[in-house]
Design a protein around this nucleic acid. Structure first.
Lengths: 168, 168
DNA sequence: TTCAATGCAAATCTTTTGCAATGGG
DNA sequence: CCCATTGCAAAAGATTTGCATTGAA
C-alpha cells in the first residue's frame, strides 16, 4: 500500500511540477517575480483536486506556510486564472471556486441538489451544436459554461452518501 | 405614438397583474401575508424587463415608495424565486440578477465580453441532447444553465455600440 | 389580538486595497 | 538598489440578520 501511494505521489508530483513550470514561464513572460509564496500556493493548488474554494486553498497553504494570508492567495489565484492554467467557476452559493485546467480537456457539470455532489461530463456533439448556434447568431464563442442541476438519486448515489453521513 | 404606448401599456399591465396574482396565490398558500410593499415590489419587478439587479429594482421601487429598503426587496425576491416565478442568475460579476420566468419559455445566454451585451437564445435540440446525456449518467435534470461567452463583433453589434458610446 | 412583515442599522461574508516592511532580480 | 510582492488590517460591496415597531388577518 505504501508502494502504491508512492507511485501515485510521484505521478502527482510530476503533474504539479509541470503546472508550476508553466506558471513560472507565465510570470517571467510578464516580467513579474517568482516568490516563495507563489510557488507554495501553486504547488498546493495543483495537489488538490476538484473545485477548490479560496478558503480550502488557504487552509492547505497555511499547513505549509502559516504566514501566508488571504490577500496573497487571492492575488496568486487571479494570476493563475490570467495565465490560463486555472478556471474560475461560480455555482450559486455566492463564492468562487477554482479548477485546474486540462485535468480533463474540457467538461461541463452536473450538480446534484440533493447531496451536493458535482460530476463532470463532456460531449463533442454538445460542443458542435453550440458552435453551430453561435454561427447562426453571428457570435464567436471564447468559452462556455453548462451546468445541469438536478438529482443523482436515480442511481442511488445520493442515498448512499446520505446514509454514510447519517451513520457517521 | 401615444396610442401605441397605451396599447403596449395595457398588455404589460395584464402581464403584470397575472404575475402578481400568481405571487399572491403562492403567498396565501404558504400562510404568509400580502402587504403593500410586496405588491409594489412584484409589480415593479414585472414591469421591468431583462436581467435585473437588486440595486436596479430597488431604485425603481423607491420611485413608487421611497421608504422601502434593501432588506424588503431581498426578502421579497427570495420569495419570488421560491414561488418559481423568478429565476436567480449570476454571470461572473459577483452580483445576482433576477429574471421573470416564462417571459420566454426557457432560454440560454450569449454574453459578449467586448460590449457586455446579453442575448438570449434557445434550441430544442440542445435540450434534447442534455436530457439524453443526463439519462446516460443516471441523472435527473431539474433545471440547467448554459452560457456562451465570446464576442458579437462579427455582426458589427459591438462596434456600433462602442462608437455610439464614444460619440456620446 | 397575534404574529408575520417592515425598516433601519448593524453584522456577515467574500473579495479588494492601502501601505509599510520585505525581498527578488 | 529598485520596485514588485507580501502581510496585515482596513475597506468595499453584496447580502443577511436582530430587533423594535407596524400592520394584516
Amino acid at each position: 500500500m505504501a508502494v502504491v501511494e508512492n507511485k501515485a505521489q510521484q505521478v502527482d508530483e510530476q503533474f504539479v511540477k509541470d503546472k508550476e513550470t508553466g506558471f513560472l514561464e507565465f510570470i517571467q513572460a510578464k516580467g513579474l517575480k517568482t516568490t516563495r509564496q507563489r510557488s507554495t500556493i501553486v504547488q498546493v493548488f495543483f495537489r488538490l483536486r476538484g473545485h477548490i474554494s479560496v478558503e480550502e486553498l488557504l487552509r492547505e497553504v497555511k499547513k505549509v506556510n502559516p504566514r501566508i494570508g488571504y490577500a496573497t492567495v487571492y492575488r496568486t489565484l487571479h494570476l493563475l486564472v490570467e495565465s490560463g492554467l486555472v478556471e474560475e467557476r461560480r455555482f450559486g452559493d455566492g463564492l468562487a471556486r477554482y479548477e485546474g485546467r486540462n485535468e480533463v480537456e474540457h467538461h461541463d457539470h452536473m450538480i446534484c441538489l440533493e447531496c451536493g455532489k458535482i460530476r463532470e461530463f463532456s460531449n463533442p456533439k454538445l460542443l458542435e451544436l453550440q458552435k453551430q448556434l453561435a454561427v447562426e447568431n453571428g457570435f464567436k464563442i471564447f468559452r462556455h459554461r453548462l451546468e445541469l442541476y438536478g438529482s443523482c438519486e436515480d442511481i442511488g448515489e445520493c442515498k448512499r452518501t446520505q446514509e454514510m453521513v447519517n451513520e457517521a
